[in-house]
Amino acid sequence: MKAVVTVVGKDRVGIIAQVCAALAESNVNVLDISQTVMQGYFTMMMVVDVSAAAVPLAQLCQTMEDKGAEMGLSIRLQREDIFDAMHRV
């Protein structure tokens, strides 16, 4: 199963490294990354594979949200299906 990770916040050194480390800790594989920095604001979207995740998905969502709070960023991990449902007929 795939999920989308969205990271938004003020840019600084090591955001990608820390987010990826947190994902790796839960055995989540990164499939695709795109990121931009606009007026000092960092926006990253990742598509990740959570089928082999070490923890249940709901818990993983919470872990990433907590990680975001700790880093002073907004991090959300959501199942990819909802974006498909809303934007693809």
């Binding site: 989308v4 695709d32 795109s34 926006t43 979207m45 959300r76 809303m86 934007h87």
Partner: peptide, 12 residues
């Protein structure tokens, strides 16, 4: 991949 705009739109 779903584009960034769609993802941000949904979140908004």
């Amino acid at each position: 991949m779903i584009n960034q705009k769609d993802i941000l739109y949904t979140q908004e």
